[in-house]
Simulated scan of single mutants.
Amino acid sequence: MSEQTTQEDAHALVGAYVLDALDPGEREAFERHLAACPDCQAEVPGMRAAAARVAATAYVRPPAHLKSAVLAQVARTRQLPPVVTAVSAPVALAWWRRPLALAAAVVVLAAAALSAVLGVQLHESRQREAQIAAIIAHPEVSREVALRGGGSATLDVAGGRAVVRMRGAAAPPSGRVYELWVVPSAGSPRPAGLMDSGSGGALVKQVTGAKALAVTVEPAGGSERPTLPPVVVLTV
């Protein structure tokens, strides 16, 4: 109901209001009119009472057999079949393709596993290089010792870690490797990894309490205990 609705139009909506037949806008406008109209305020309760009496008079109790009759009709009525979306049947692989598909799956899985391993190794290698660079840049202890036969070995220590580098050293004999050892103040040396004389250095992650680091020539793959006298000993 618009703002231009006349008083007569507003009065005519009393019945629709009582029966809840107005849309939200009309209902809101009529209720504003109702708040200021004594005639409509008096008429609304009477209309509601009349509507209630009409509803009570028109009410008819359904017969007792109606429910059973409806259910019987439902049982006799054929139901529509369910709507089923057609789905293509899976195509079976030819017998000679199955081994190829399995082999391809194995190759894919192997490639994924190899990629993951290489990713981890690359990450660890970069971490190691960063740690070596940090120790060499800011060592707490740094010393260099000449090697017999030429070249030198350098030790840098920082934060309980150490880096050992060999410069100008001859390559070990065929089938042999350089191995690094942590020499404790008491007890036997413990292996600290293999060394490459041409690499950027070997990282020892824990030298706290160590007396020295030593390098020996060992069989390929390294040894659990030194088998030859050290090539160099670097005091920590």
Results as ranks from 00 to 15, higher is better:
80 L>Q: 13
33 H>T: 06
54 V>Q: 06
50 A>H: 04
49 A>H: 07
71 L>T: 14
46 G>S: 10
23 D>N: 15
84 V>H: 09
52 A>N: 13
31 E>H: 03
52 A>H: 07
25 G>V: 09
49 A>Y: 03
51 A>H: 12
15 G>W: 03
42 A>W: 05
84 V>Q: 15
67 K>L: 10
44 V>Q: 02
69 A>C: 07
73 Q>K: 13
55 A>M: 04
40 C>K: 08
33 H>G: 02
39 D>E: 09
84 V>L: 13
74 V>L: 13
59 Y>P: 00
68 S>R: 15
43 E>F: 01
61 R>L: 07
63 P>F: 00
80 L>K: 15
35 A>T: 12
65 H>T: 09
37 C>R: 04
78 R>I: 09
81 P>F: 02
22 L>N: 08
22 L>K: 06
82 P>L: 09
65 H>A: 06
45 P>F: 10
61 R>Y: 00
25 G>H: 09
38 P>V: 10
48 R>D: 05
49 A>L: 13
25 G>Q: 13
64 A>M: 05
75 A>Y: 00
52 A>F: 01
55 A>C: 05
15 G>Q: 05
28 E>Y: 00
62 P>A: 08
32 R>K: 11
57 T>I: 05
21 A>I: 02
77 T>C: 03
76 R>G: 03
86 A>W: 12
49 A>F: 01
46 G>I: 15
53 R>V: 13
86 A>Y: 12
23 D>R: 09
59 Y>E: 06
33 H>D: 08
69 A>E: 15
51 A>F: 04
74 V>C: 08
71 L>P: 01
27 R>I: 10
72 A>V: 01
53 R>I: 11
14 V>E: 00
24 P>M: 07
85 T>V: 14
63 P>D: 11
23 D>A: 10
62 P>I: 05
26 E>N: 02
53 R>W: 03
59 Y>D: 06
64 A>C: 04
35 A>G: 04
47 M>E: 15
23 D>K: 09
20 D>G: 10
18 V>A: 14
48 R>I: 07
81 P>C: 07
55 A>Y: 00
79 Q>A: 14
51 A>M: 12
78 R>H: 06
18 V>D: 05
41 Q>I: 01
14 V>M: 03
59 Y>Q: 11
29 A>L: 04
83 V>G: 03
45 P>R: 12
41 Q>T: 07
79 Q>I: 09
39 D>I: 15
20 D>E: 13
24 P>L: 10
83 V>N: 06
56 A>F: 04
38 P>K: 07
27 R>N: 10
82 P>V: 06
36 A>E: 12
27 R>H: 08
36 A>S: 14
57 T>S: 03
13 L>F: 11
20 D>V: 15
75 A>D: 10
54 V>R: 13
41 Q>K: 09
30 F>S: 01
19 L>Y: 05
45 P>E: 12
29 A>P: 09
29 A>G: 10
50 A>F: 06
63 P>R: 09
25 G>T: 14
24 P>W: 07
82 P>W: 02
73 Q>F: 05
